[in-house]
Structure formats: structure tokens, C-alpha cells
Design a protein around this nucleic acid. Structure first.
Ligand SMILES: [Mn+2]
Ligand SMILES: [Mn+2]
Ligand SMILES: [Zn+2]
Ligand SMILES: [Zn+2]
Lengths: 152, 152
DNA sequence: CTCCTTATTGCAACTGGTTGCAATAAGGAA
DNA sequence: TTCCTTATTGCAACCAGTTGCAATAAGGAG
């Protein structure tokens, strides 16, 4: 996804094209992955030191509203932003070792269907951070009761 | 769930019982539902005006770590806290009219199983805010194509 | 009860993010 | 090209929440 496409998309939806917005979209498209607002600002400053914090936050909010980027809180005290990718994906985040596993968006298909069928609710299930414990960090599977019984 | 039980739980897990912690737990148990830190502080101040903000936030973080309360961001600029209920439940939040629908924790069972089976990941799926569009706020279902064909 | 260790509190400074408002500049009309 | 409307920016003040550190007080040992 090139940033000019996103700019055109913005324009078509009635929003104005400003140099700030172009720089922000450019940085988000180039730096692939999850970027914090701070990182986005730092990267823009290399070329244009005057970029303003409020403009960046407001643009990110606009892009999120239009589903062009996904804001995500991985629990590190700063929200990250990533270009909206297709197909969707999510992240499993280990609450202990912080390892992240990427999973396909399809894992939410059953939930999505259930919510639509039972509650007529159209859930936004684009890009989740799901916390939990990875394989390595789970307590050793409870000593098999069968083992204890055998010993006794 | 009475707050003395939670106090005992805290103590058993090696944490100290302080008047501040007791007041915080009491408020969370009484005021049933989702309370913001501000609301918790305001309610405590009625009896004890000296309660300290940092102590409250640190206690809430502790209670969340011990799974005694669920912190949840409903997108209103303030995190809310609710006593951890059993069985689990989640909330569907309409992004347009803000209506909230409570759903049973079981809706996540298929996802939980998939993540455990495929990724050996033990997901924390206690209390989610799932955003989307409620029945009323969804754009009128696209004019049935069959209807168009019949007309043509 | 008295003393000791150290978890917890209180405070003030700080961080990430938001907001109201005046100044600026897209982009459409003429 | 010039003018106009109004979306967007920049700024400074603000808000929710966090952090480092010194003072306090839980709770265990004697
Ligand atoms: Mn991602
Ligand atoms: Mn709830
Ligand atoms: Zn892990
Ligand atoms: Zn609605």
C-alpha cells in the first residue's frame, strides 16, 4: 500500500490534503509495523522539524476513524499505529515474557458470526492485542493426577 | 462478593491490609458496575477526604494483577473498574449510539480453544469491550440483489 | 508491648494524549 | 488569478495516569 493511494482515498472522502497529512501517511507506510506517535513525530522531524504534536494525534484519529490505520494498545504506555492490512491479523501477547505471536484475522470468524446471529451486532474485529500466557510461560501442566495415584 | 472476602484474599497472597485498600475495595464492591478512578476517589472522599490518587491507581493495578477487578476502556477517556464477576461477561459497545449490550463470557469459548490448540496460548478473555454497530445503527441492509433482478 | 524490616503511602514532577481557540491555508467558485 | 468558506494547524492549557523518592505504618519476631 503506497501512501499516495491513501492520500487519494482521504481526498475522495472529502478531507483536505495537507503536507502534514502526507508526511504522516508516508511515515506510516514506510516504517512497516507498529509505530508510536512519538516515533512517527521523530521520523517526520528529520525532514520537517516543525511538525506539531496535536496535528499528528488528530490525523491519526482521523485515519483510524476511516479505517486506514489500526491503533493498538500493547500495554506499554503508548498506543501504536499500523497501516490497516488485508487480510486482518491479530497479536497474541504474553503477559510474562512479552513475546508476540501474529495470528490470522480468521480466528475471530466464529465470534463474529455468533454476535451477528444472536445479537445482530456488527463487531469491529480488525486488529486485536490478546493478552495471555505463551506456551513457555504457562505453569507446568498440573502434575497429572494419574501420576500421583500411581505413586500412592 | 463482599469486600472482606477480597481483603482476606489480598492478605493470603502476602499483601498488606491498609485502610486505603479496604476503602477502595469497599467502594468497588458496593457501587456495582463500572466505576472510573475519579468516581472511586470521589466516593471515598465522602468519608475520608485525604485519600491519595497514586494510592488508588496503584491499588487498582494490584487488584487487576490479582484478577480481583477488571479494568476496561470503553473509549470514554477514562478506564473503568468492575469487580471480577463469575461467570465472565463482555460488553458490545455501539460505536455510533453508544448502546451497550452485555453478553456471556462463553462467546469466546471457540476462540479460546482455537488459541490453545493451535498456538498453545492461554488467552485472558475475562472482560472485553467489543466495539461495532448495533442493529439499529447498521446501514439498511443492501437492497436485496434478487429484488433488483426481478424488477429488471 | 517494642523493635525492625520493608511494603505502602503521599507528594510533586512528569508523560502521553486531548482540547479550545485564534491563525492559517486547502480547495472550490467566479 | 482572486476571493471566500471553513477544515486544519499550532499553541498553550489541560486531563488521566505514572513514577521516583522520602515518610509512614503493617505485621512479624522477640
Ligand atoms: Mn499488527
Ligand atoms: Mn462489565
Ligand atoms: Zn511468555
Ligand atoms: Zn447503535
Amino acid at each position: 500500500m503506497h501512501h499516495t493511494e491513501l492520500l487519494a482515498d482521504l481526498r475522495q472522502r472529502g478531507h483536505r490534503l495537507t503536507p502534514q497529512r502526507e508526511m504522516i501517511l508516508n511515515v506510516i507506510c514506510e516504517g512497516n509495523g507498529h509505530l508510536t506517535a512519538d516515533e512517527i513525530i521523530a521520523r517526520i522531524r528529520k525532514q520537517y522539524p516543525y511538525i506539531n504534536k496535536s496535528a499528528v494525534y488528530r490525523t491519526l484519529e482521523l485515519l483510524a476513524r476511516l479505517c486506514l490505520v489500526n491503533p493498538t494498545d500493547f500495554g506499554d504506555g503508548k498506543v501504536t499505529y499500523e497501516i490497516h492490512r488485508h487480510p486482518h491479523h491479530h497479536h497474541l501477547v504474553c503477559r510474562q515474557c512479552r513475546k508476540m505471536i501474529e495470528v490470522d484475522g480468521a480466528v475471530f470468524a466464529p465470534l463474529e458470526k455468533l454476535l451477528r446471529d444472536e445479537y445482530a451486532f456488527a463487531a469491529d474485529l480488525d486488529h486485536f492485542a490478546i493478552f495471555g500466557l505463551c506456551r513457555k510461560c504457562q505453569p507446568a501442566s498440573s502434575p497429572a493426577p494419574t501420576l500421583r495415584k500411581r505413586r500412592a
